[in-house]
């Protein structure tokens, strides 16, 4: 009787490990669901890189906000930029807002990068890194998708492509439409 129970327990443990491994391998390593995801987006007010005042997350309340952490010294940021530009052009007249947060560099370098790369959405400077820390950023590029309800719905670590951006944005717009 005991041996039978033990045999069943061993099978259950092995099945559990197999299921855990299967789930782990299915996960997108760029989609990290720890920390701030599914929680209210930390509020911030930061100075614009072009010196034209400040921008707050609260200014975009009720909209889908794509927050992108970038830096000029970050090669994957340069790699993902064309996708960001295309997606910005696609949604610029809609309820979708893109916001760039410059990560660990001088405002001069950040501004030069923004101008060189044709970035026309609002870009702000996180001078002391507090906003990046409050979002749990590891390093640029990182992109957060914030819903109209102010909740962080998703996060992408590393260079992002157009399809991933559009899919995440459309999902949030769909949720907003059904509310």
């Amino acid at each position: 009787m005991l041996a039978r129970v033990v045999r069943i327990a061993v099978v259950v443990v092995i099945l559990g490990l197999v299921v855990t491994l299967a789930l782990a391998f299915r996960r997108d390593p760029h989609d990290i669901r720890t920390g701030t995801v599914n929680k209210p987006a930390p509020a911030f007010t930061l100075g614009r890189l072009d010196g034209s005042g400040q921008a707050s997350l609260a200014d975009y309340s009720g909209k889908v906000v794509v927050v992108n952490f970038f830096a000029s010294w970050c090669l994957p940021c340069i790699q993902e930029n064309p996708a960001l530009v295309r997606v910005y052009e696609r949604y610029r007249s809609s309820d979708v807002v893109m916001l760039g947060i410059n990560f660990q560099e001088s405002r001069e370098n950040g501004l030069a990068y923004v101008q060189r790369m044709g970035i026309s959405w609002t870009s702000v400077a996180d001078d002391d890194g507090r906003v990046a820390l409050s979002y749990g950023v590891f390093g640029p590029p990182e992109t957060f998708f914030i819903g109209p309800d102010g909740i962080i719905a998703g996060r992408h670590i590393g260079p992002i492509d157009e399809e991933t951006l559009v899919t995440a944005i459309e999902k949030l717009r769909g949720q907003a439409a059904t509310r």
Partner: peptide, 17 residues
């Protein structure tokens, strides 16, 4: 927990035998 549980299960199996 899992390695300890596996060890306990193995010991129980051997003892039973």
């Amino acid at each position: 927990l899992v390695p300890v549980a596996a060890l306990a299960a193995g010991l129980a199996l051997v003892t039973g035998r």
